[in-house]
Write a protein that binds this DNA or RNA. Structure first.
Length: 417
DNA sequence: TCTGGGGTCCTAGGACCC
DNA sequence: TCTGGGGTCCTAGGACCC
């Protein structure tokens, strides 16, 4: 059994480069929403010392000095490119888990020569999508992750950890906080026990790990020892909660703008809810704000339960704007708001005892279907709710976004000969 | 001035039941 | 002062991932 981990190199930057080859060889970064901080860097940008997550305003100097090309994030483009990469990968695996927008675990079919096989997959992805990937192979998902780190550094972008009888020499090079499943907190704890790398951890006492790092820590330890405990999760993810939140593009002090924002987020969240055929009755809204008198940050949170589980946008808009009325305080500068929908259940669980309302629910479903169809065909917000606002002056800034080359007819790439 | 957005899982402890 | 034994469910908080 072989697990492979495929990781797209500098994914967001690579997506931009596919449609703008002039960017190749130059330092390029992509910023988070609101153009706030750096979330993707080309190798050239990394070499300049630009850190992941660095605030954009702090990098201004470096950007200018080295002619760094800066993009706002274009998630429609990245999402579509991701789907293309995954589609190609699935042709060469017996099973695939799409782990994130730029990563996938594969079960590989039995091979004589695994290195050759993953080199071939890599070539296919590059040829069919333009995206460069790195591929690592291991006996477990955790080891495939380790292998991928070496693949990233290797000249041909692939690495097979199972080609070695003993992999300790490689595990020794992986710092403890870089092991999949061990984050900042556990790394700190482990270092205090003189555990500095993956090899040290591999030989730790299982009882101690179970006691201090929960069952998850124990799984990680066993996976490093080649015992597969974390299986491939290929089920289409049915989410258990949906969050939509954004920072504002300007200071928001007015209740109507805050209501517009949460209405907009409720609209997006309900689209997602319906897309996965779920309903829910529990909604929370939160706002982040700043009191200009003491220059402190705050976070306010309010939970609300709908009388009946639903996926009908107006139900959620009503609930969300109701929460805003309770939370809002005059004279406060709001920076960000969001809505979280919890306790999702399949939509056919709709309570039968509410039979008197079934006719209403059917009517609502029809309206939702039409909404979703129109927006799918013509783009998000082609039809929307008035409460979500028209001008949306509070919307996030994305000043340097590239076009949606693959998902919008009006922005398709034009070539002049 | 300006620091993202979206998820999952595990555990301890409290509330409550007989 | 002493104060059973066994169980379930829920929640907050903490850990992790990209």
């Amino acid at each position: 059994m072989r697990f492979a981990l495929v990781d797209c190199n500098n994914f967001f930057v690579s997506c931009e480069r596919v449609f703008n080859p002039k960017l190749i060889g130059k330092p390029v970064v992509v910023l988070s929403s609101n153009d706030a901080c750096v979330i993707a860097r080309s190798n050239e940008a990394k070499a300049l010392g630009i850190a992941m997550g660095a605030p954009a305003f702090e990098c201004e100097q470096i950007f200018k000095k080295h002619n760094v090309i800066v993009y706002s994030s274009n998630f429609a483009l990245y999402g579509d490119m991701s789907a293309r990469v995954m589609q190609v990968l699935s042709q060469y695996a017996t099973d695939i888990e799409i782990y994130s927008v730029d990563e996938a675990f594969l079960f590989l079919p039995k091979q004589q020569n695994y290195t050759q096989y993953i080199q071939y997959i890599r070539k296919q992805v590059k040829q069919k999508t333009g995206i460069p990937v790195s591929i690592g192979i291991g006996l477990t998902k955790t080891l495939a992750k380790v292998a991928n780190k070496f693949a990233k550094k290797s000249a041909d972008g692939v690495f097979d950890l199972t080609a070695f009888e003993n992999n300790d020499q490689f595990l020794e090079q992986i710092e403890i906080q870089d092991v999949w499943g061990i984050g900042y907190r556990y790394a700190k704890l482990l270092k205090s026990k003189k555990i500095f790398n993956a090899k040290n951890f591999k030989y730790m006492d299982e009882r101690w790990v179970r006691k201090n790092m929960t069952i998850n820590g124990l799984r990680t330890l066993q996976e490093l020892n080649g015992i597969s405990c974390i299986s491939l999760n290929n089920a289409p993810a049915t989410k258990k909660s949906i969050t939509v939140s954004r920072s504002f593009g300007k200071n928001v002090t007015n209740i109507n703008e805050l209501k517009e924002a949460v209405s907009t987020y409720a609209n997006i969240a309900c689209e997602k809810l319906r897309a996965q055929k779920s309903i829910a009755s529990n909604i929370s809204i939160f706002v982040c704000f700043r009191n200009y008198q003491d220059n402190d940050r705050y976070y306010k949170f309010l939970n609300y339960t709908l009388p009946i589980a639903s996926n009908y946008t107006p139900d959620f808009i009503k609930a969300a704007t109701g929460c805003v009325e309770k939370i809002f305080r005059q004279g406060i500068i709001y920076k960000k708001a969001g809505i979280i929908i919890n306790d999702l259940i399949p939509h056919d669980f709709i309570q039968m005892h509410t039979s008197h309302a079934l006719a209403d629910i059917e009517k609502q479903n029809k309206i939702s279907n039409i909404f979703d169809k129109i927006n799918k065909k013509w783009g998000r917000d082609s039809v929307s709710y008035a409460s979500a606002g028209i001008d949306k002056l509070w919307k996030v800034k994305r000043l340097k976004k590239s076009d949606c080359y693959t998902t919008s007819w009006s922005e398709i790439l034009t070539i002049r000969i």
